[in-house]
Simulated scan of single mutants.
Amino acid sequence: MTPLSRTRLVVLAAVMGLVAWAIARMAVASGSTPLAVPWTVLVVAGLVGVLVLWLGWAVRQYRRGKNPGLSGLRAARTAVLAQACAYTGSIIAGTFAGYGLAIALEWSHAPRREVAISAFVAVLGGLVLVVAALIAEHWCKDGRDDDNEGGSAPA
């Protein structure tokens, strides 16, 4: 399994932000009322981040020999979950950042300002999820460098 690429996460967030910004600007320009983002996005993303960290911690303890009952399959599934959460958090952060920036252009209008603030709070939820996933994925790595790519067998 290849480790997460931080560059890929940033590019994904930027692309999603650009798409969300363009769609939100077109919708607002056509007279649509922007919808507030539920504040629960932050709570749910935070809870999933805590879950990923908890599962990642169990794998970390397994790798250090302190949790021998953990199966290798669960460790692999935790690593995959961490990567999926990183991508999901990146998409959430980018999408709501673009949406919030598009609405924030009309900051002087109080109801739209509240919508923009709710979108920026959701961005925090996405960032929490990305950071938790990156930490958990780091705990799941085996820590060895791939020195034997040249064809030599390990000793």
Rank of each mutant, 00 (worst) to 15 (best):
Ile91Ala: 07
Ala104Arg: 13
Leu129Arg: 01
Ser118Tyr: 11
Val131Gly: 00
Ser118Glu: 15
His109Pro: 09
Glu114Asn: 08
Phe96Tyr: 15
Ala119Tyr: 07
Arg112Phe: 09
Ile135Asn: 00
Val131Gln: 02
Lys141Val: 08
Val123Cys: 08
Leu127Gly: 15
Glu114Cys: 10
Gly94Met: 04
Ala93Glu: 09
Thr95Trp: 06
Ala102Lys: 13
Leu129Tyr: 03
Leu124Glu: 07
Leu124Gln: 12
Glu137Ser: 04
Cys140Phe: 11
Gly94Lys: 02
Ile117His: 13
Ala122Ser: 12
Gly126Arg: 07
Val128Gln: 00
Ala110Asn: 01
Ala104Trp: 10
Ile91Arg: 09
Asp145Trp: 12
Ile103Leu: 14
Leu127Asp: 08
Ala93Gln: 05
Asp142Cys: 03
Leu134Tyr: 00
Trp139Lys: 05
Ile92Glu: 01
Arg113Tyr: 15
Arg112Thr: 04
Gly143Cys: 06
Arg113Asp: 10
Ala122Pro: 12
Ala110His: 00
Ala93Val: 09
Asp145Gly: 15
Ser118Asn: 12
Ser118Pro: 11
Arg144Met: 14
Cys140Gly: 08
Trp107Lys: 06
Ile135Ser: 00
Ile135Cys: 00
Ile91Asn: 05
Glu114Gln: 14
Arg144Tyr: 08
Trp107Leu: 09
Gly143Ala: 06
Ile91His: 04
Ile103Tyr: 09
